[in-house]
Nucleic acid binder design. Sequence first.
DNA 1: GGCCGGGGCATTTTT
DNA 2: TGCCCCGGCC
Length: 776
Amino acid sequence: MDQFLGELNESQREAVLYNDGPSLVVAGAGSGKTRVLTYKIAYLLKNGISPYNILSLTFTNKAAREMKDRIARIMGDDIAWRLWMGTFHSIFSKILRREADKIGFKSDFTIYDSQDSKNLIKAIIKEMALDDKIYKPALIHSRISRMKNALITPESYAANKELIEDDFRSKRPATRDIYTTYRNRCRTSGVMDFDDLLLNTWLLFREFPDVIARYRNQFRFILVDEYQDTNSVQHEIVNQLAADHHRICVVGDDAQSIYSFRGANISNILDFRKIYPESKLFKLEQNYRSTQIIVNAANSLIDKNQEQIRKTVFSKKQIGEKIQVISAYSDYEEGYAIAGRIAEIRMLNHYNYSNFAILYRTNAQSRIFEEALRKRNMPYKIYGGLSFFQRKEVKDVIAYFRLISNPDDEEAFKRIINYPARSIGDTTVSKIAVCAHGNRLSLWDVISDPLAYNLAISNGTANKLKDFRQLIESFIEANTTMNAYEIGELVIRQTGMVGELYQDKTPEGLSRIQNIEELVNSLHEFVVNRQEEGVESVKMGDFLAEISLMTDQDTDKDGSNDRITMMTVHSAKGLEFKNVFVVGLEEDLFPSQLSKNSNREIEEERRLFYVAITRAEDNCILSYAKSRFQNGQLRMSAPSRFIKDIDRKYLKLPSDITFGQFAPENFHRFETPHHTSFERPWEYKQEVAPVSTPPTSEQLTRIDRSTTTQQTGNTSSPQNINGLAVGNTIEHDRFGIGEIVGLEGNNENAKATVEFENAGKKQLLLKFAKFRIIDN
DNA sequence: GGCCGGGGCATTTTT
DNA sequence: TGCCCCGGCC
C-alpha cells in the first residue's frame, strides 16, 4: 500500500485517500489523472471494499481496459475482473439487458449504430412524405440525439413550447412527429440506439424505485473519468445513483472539454460543487508530460478563455525548445515542410517515427500530409475515417447476425433481405413495411405470416419471401445449439456471400474478403476467450453486445509499428507524443469557420487547441498555410488568432507573420533576394535554433520561395499571380519539371502556361494543378 | 439489378 | 477536390 502511495505527489495522494464524500478532481493535462483513479480504486479494494461495490465510468473502452489492466497488476486478475468498470454505454447496456423486461424490451435487444439510426430516420421522413432537403436526416438525427442527451422524450418534446416554436421557425414543424415515430419504431424493432442506452437507463431508474434502490445499494463508490465531457443524461444518472451516499468522485479538466457538439455539458464539471456543496476539490497541477515551455505556452493560451476553473499547471521537466511556428505558402508546401522538419528532428535526436504526431482540425487535411510523407518514404498511420465495423461487407454479415439474434431488427432486415440478391425489390419491401407499421408490427412479423396481412404480392415474390424466412429461421434454430463462431461460419457459407465476394478480384474485392475473414477470426477469438474464462456456451448475442459498442480504436492492431501518427485533434485526446505538429492553424479552419458565431464555440476551439499542444512531451511545432484548397477552391488564409493567444516569448515566429488580414502588407520586398546564409526566414532573428540542423539546400529553396512569394498577396499583379511569376521553374506531380512562360487570370481562375522539359507545353488551371515551385 | 455520370455538399465523433 | 446520392439507362 505504502509503496504505491509513495509514487504519488501530495495532491494526488490526498485525492486518492479521500473517499468519505463527493470530490472533484481537477486534473490538468498530463497530471497523472489515470494514476490517481487507478490507485484510488486499488486503495478502496485494499481496504476491503468489494469490487462489486465500485462503479467506475470512462469514456472509451480503451481507457477502461487500460485502467483494469493496471488494477489487475496491483490486485490480481480475479478482483479487477469483478469491478464494474467500463464506458457509460457498456455499463448501462449491461444493466438494461438485465432489467429489459421492465421497460418493454427483451434482454437481447440490438443496438443501432449512428448509420442505422440515420437510415431509419431517412426512411421515416420519406414515409411521411416530407422534403428531405428541409428535413435532412443527419440534422434530424443530431437533433433527436441532443434531445435524448438532454433528457427530453418525445412526450416532453411535444409539450415543450420553446422547442415546438423553434421547429416552426426553422420550418421543420414535423420534427416532433419524426422523433415520436422513430422512438416507436425502435421499440417495435426491439432496438436501442446509443443515446437510448443512457436515456432508457435514466427512465428505468426514475420509474422503478426498487431498481434504483438496488443499484444504489450496490454501487457504494462511484468514480467518473473525463467528467468535462459528460452530457446531461450521464450527469443525471450518476446523480441518481449517488443520491443516498454521495460517495462520488469525478475527475476531469474543464480546459479539455471539446465535445459540446455531441451534447457534452461543460457546466456539469463547472457546477459540480453547487450540486454537492460539501464536496472536496483537489487540483492536480503538476504536469509530468511536457516541457516547461509547452506547459507555459498552453497556460497562456487557455488563459484567454473566460469560463474555466482557474488552476496553475506547471512542469518541472526541462525548459525545452520554444514552439516553432512554420509558415507555408500553400497547403502543399505545408505538407512538405512538415515532412522535412520531421526528418530533421528525427535524425538529430534519434527519435522513432512513432514519436511523431501530426494533428489537424479536420480529416480532410490528412491527404496532403499523406502525400508528402509517402513521397519521402516516411511511414505513417492515419486514424479516423471508416472503421472496421462500418465497412459495408462487415455490416452486411453482422446484419445477419443481428437478425438471428433479434428478427424484429428493422434496419438489419432491410439490409439483407435482398443481399445477396434474391429478387426481393424495394417495392416488396415497402409493401411489407407499410403493412408492418400500420399494424405496429416488425417487418419480420409480417413475412412470418404474409397471408394474415393480405400483402399484395405475386406468388413468385411470396415464395422468395418464404425462402428468405426459412433461411433465417434455420439460422435461428441453429443458434439455439451452436456457439457464435459456428453460427458465423454457417451464415457466411449458407448465404453465398463468400462465393459472391470471391468473384471479385479487384483490390477492393480482396480487401472485402479480408475484412470478412477478419470478422470470422474475431468471432473465433471471442469464443475461445470466453471459453477460457469458463463460459460454456458463447452465443452470437454476446458477440453482438460486445462489438456494437466497439470503435476503431478497439480493433487497432498495428499500434506498435514505428509510424508517424496522423489524426484529428479530437481523437488525440488522452494521448501523448514526443513531437507534436499541430497543422493548419488558420482562421476559418482552426478555429473552424462554423464556430465563429459565438464566443462559447470559439472558447471550445481554443480548448481544442489547448488539447493539441498539451499532447507534446518534448517538441511542439505549429504551422499554417497562406493559401489552401478548401471545398474545391483556392482560398487565401490568415494565421489563426490562436497563435496570437500564446505568449510570444514561448514562440519562434516566422518573420513575416501578421494577424487579422489575408496577406501581409508589410512584407519586405527582399533586401537580399536570395538567402545566402542558413538563417531561416521564419525564425525570429535573435533566436538561435539549438534543436535544429541547418535545412538542406532543397528545403531552403522551398522555404525561400515561401517567403518571397508572399509578396504577391495582392492577387491582381499581372506578372505575379497566386505567388507565381513568369520564369519560375516548377515541379509538377505528373509532368515533372517545367518553366512558367505565361500567366493569366487570378485566384481561382488563374492559369499558367508551362513549358515542361519532357511533357511539352501545358495550360494549368492553378486551382487544380499539383506542383511546387523549385526555383525562380 | 447494377453501373455510370451529374449535381450537391463539405467540422470535430470516446459510444 | 472528392465523396455521396440519385436518377437514368442498359
